[in-house]
Design a protein around this nucleic acid. Sequence first.
DNA 1: TGCTAATGTCGTCACATAACGAAATGACAG
DNA 2: CTGTCATTTCGTTATGTGACGACATTAGCA
Lengths: 121, 121
Amino acid sequence: MRVTKALSDSQRVRILMMLRGGELCVCRIVEVLALAPSTVSKHLSLLNEADLVEVRKDGRWAYYRLPQGDAMKAVRPVLKWLESALGEDGSVLRDADRLARVLSGAGEGSARRTKACPKEC
Amino acid sequence: MRVTKALSDSQRVRILMMLRGGELCVCRIVEVLALAPSTVSKHLSLLNEADLVEVRKDGRWAYYRLPQGDAMKAVRPVLKWLESALGEDGSVLRDADRLARVLSGAGEGSARRTKACPKEC
DNA sequence: TGCTAATGTCGTCACATAACGAAATGACAG
DNA sequence: CTGTCATTTCGTTATGTGACGACATTAGCA
C-alpha cells in the first residue's frame, strides 16, 4: 500500500514525472511546484519510503532521482503506466516547461547554473 | 488521479483482488470484508468511477467484476502490477479463503447458494 | 396494493494527511 | 568556532476520507 498511497497525491506524481529527465536538486523541485520547501521535503521522503525515488546527498544539497539498477526493475511498470495514463497531462506538461526554464537559469540576474545546483541554487 | 486514488485504499484493493476469480454480488463482498453495506457500496462506486470495475445489475442484485473487453486493456497493466506487488499478501490470502467459504455456503443452516446470489443472498 | 430485501445516497463523526512556518540538523566558508 | 544556507523535522491548522447508521430507492413476492 505504500506505493499506491504515495501515488495518490498529485504533487508526488508531478515530482515523479519531472524526474524522468534525470536527477534534480530539491530546490529546483521547490521552484517548479511552488510549494514550501518543508512540504516538498515531506513528499520526497514519502516517495523515498515507497522506493519510488532514490537520494544522493552531495554536500549541502540533496539530489533525488528515479530508482536505478535493481530497484528500477520493480518500479518500471508503475512508471510506464503512469506515463501512459497521464504523461501528456496538463500540469505535467506545464511542469516540464517550467523546469526547462528553471534549468536554463531564466529569470535570474546572471548566467549561472551550468547543470547542477551549485553555484547558486 | 482517479485511478491512483482508488488504489490508495486497502479495502478497495482487497475488492479488486477478490474479483480476479470472477464477478461477485455486493452482499458477498460485504460478507468477506465485514464492513457495513453502505461502506462497501461507496468503495464500489469509487472503483467504478475509476473504471476499475464494471457493474451488472440483475433484479435486486448488483454484480461487480473486473473490466471486460476494451476497458480491460487499459486496466490490465495496473492489475498485473498489483498482483505481483501484493498478490500473496496476508489479507488478500485470507480474503480468498473467506470468499471460498462464503461461496460454498458454509456456516449456514441449509445447503443453498449454488453459484449466484439467489436463492438466499 | 403493500411487504421485504438488496443497493445506493446522505449526514455525521473520527481520523488521516497536505500545507505552512518555526526551529533543528548538517555542511561548507570564513 | 561561528555564521550561513539547503534540507529536514516538528507542531499546528484546514481539508479530505473512511466508517457508520438512517433513510431513499427499486425489484420481486404475497
